[in-house]
C-alpha cells in the first residue's frame, strides 16, 4: 500500500474514502444518540413531545382561521409539516455546529470531515422515525385516510429533506469554522425559514406574488408536498415538488463543494 500526502489541487468527491470510513458514520451517530438522552428522565419521549406540543399550540391559535384553507384536517396538515420541520431544523442545527463541537477531534485525528455533519443529521433522522410512528397513531383518530402511495411518497419526502438539510448544513458547518457569526445567524435563519415555508399555513394564504413564490420554491416545500401527498384527499402539486427539489439539489451541490474546498484547512483555524 503506497500513498502520497501533498497539497490538494485536484477536486475529488472522496466517496472511496468515505466508504473506507463507513463504520465511523455509525459510531458518531450512535455516540450522539446515546449522549443526547443520557441523564434525562423522559429520554426518547423528548423527540416526540416537542413536535406534538408545537402542533397543539398552533392548532389552538390557527385552527379557526386556517382549517377551511387546507385540503386535509388542519391538525394533520400541521403535524405532517412539523415532522419535516423538526427533522430539518434540528438536523441543520446539529450539522452546523458539528465541526465546532468536535474541534478537539478534528485537531488531533484525520478522517473524512464529511462524516461529522452527515452523521449528526442522522441523529435527527432517528428522532424523525420515532415521531413518524406517533404520526400514524394520531392519524387513526381522524377521519383521514392515507393512500398506498405513501409507501413511496414518505421515503421520498424524507430523502428530499435530508438532501436539503445536508446541503445547507455542510455550507453552514464550513462557514462556522471560519466565521463564528454563524452561531448567531443560525437560530434567526431557522426561525424565519419556518414562516417562509408552508408548515403552519397552506400555500394559498397570501396574495403577495413574491411571498407565494418563496413558499412554493423554497427547498423544503417539496418535502412538505410529498409528505402531505400521502393523504388521499390531498392533491399533490408536482410543479412544486420538481421546482423545490431542483432548488434543494442546487443547495446541496453548492454546500458540498464549498465544504470539500475548505475542509483541508479546518484543523488550522477551528
Amino acid at each position: 500500500m503506497e500513498y502520497e500526502i501533498k497539497t490538494k489541487n485536484k477536486f475529488s468527491f472522496g466517496f472511496r474514502e468515505l466508504n473506507e470510513y463507513r463504520e465511523l458514520f455509525y459510531f458518531f451517530t450512535w455516540r450522539d444518540v446515546k449522549v443526547k438522552y443520557k441523564q434525562t428522565v423522559l429520554g426518547f419521549l423528548w423527540a416526540i413531545l416537542q413536535p406534538l406540543f408545537l402542533t397543539f399550540i398552533f392548532t389552538f391559535a390557527f385552527k379557526k382561521s386556517l382549517s377551511t384553507k387546507t385540503e386535509i384536517e388542519y391538525v394533520l396538515f400541521l403535524l405532517s409539516g412539523m415532522l419535516i420541520w423538526n427533522l430539518f431544523s434540528s438536523g441543520l442545527n446539529n450539522s452546523s455546529n458539528s465541526m465546532i463541537n468536535n474541534s478537539n477531534i478534528i485537531k488531533k485525528i484525520y478522517f473524512p470531515r464529511l462524516i461529522l455533519p452527515i452523521s449528526s443529521i442522522f441523529v435527527s433522522v432517528i428522532d424523525y422515525l420515532i415521531t413518524l410512528g406517533v404520526f400514524f397513531i394520531v392519524v387513526l383518530f381522524y377521519d383521514e385516510s392515507i393512500s398506498l402511495w405513501a409507501i413511496i411518497l414518505i421515503p421520498l419526502s424524507l430523502l428530499s429533506t435530508i438532501i436539503t438539510t445536508t446541503g445547507i448544513g455542510l455550507f453552514m458547518a464550513a462557514l462556522n469554522v471560519k466565521y463564528r457569526d454563524v452561531r448567531y445567524v443560525l437560530p434567526f435563519f431557522i426561525q424565519s425559514l419556518m414562516f417562509l415555508s408552508p408548515i403552519i399555513f397552506p400555500l394559498k394564504i397570501s396574495d403577495n406574488i413574491l411571498f407565494e413564490f418563496i413558499l412554493k420554491y423554497n427547498p423544503l416545500s417539496g418535502s412538505l408536498e410529498l409528505m402531505r401527498g400521502s393523504f388521499e384527499k390531498y392533491i399533490l402539486n408536482w410543479d412544486i415538488v420538481i421546482g423545490s427539489s431542483a432548488v434543494s439539489i442546487l443547495f446541496f451541490i453548492f454546500g458540498f463543494f464549498y465544504f470539500r474546498k475548505t475542509e483541508n484547512y479546518f484543523a488550522d483555524i477551528v
Binding site: K6, I109, N264
Partner: peptide, 8 residues
C-alpha cells in the same frame, strides 16, 4: 502533516 490533519 504526517497524520493528514493539515495539508502541506
Amino acid at each position: 502533516v504526517l497524520s493528514k490533519i493539515t495539508p502541506p
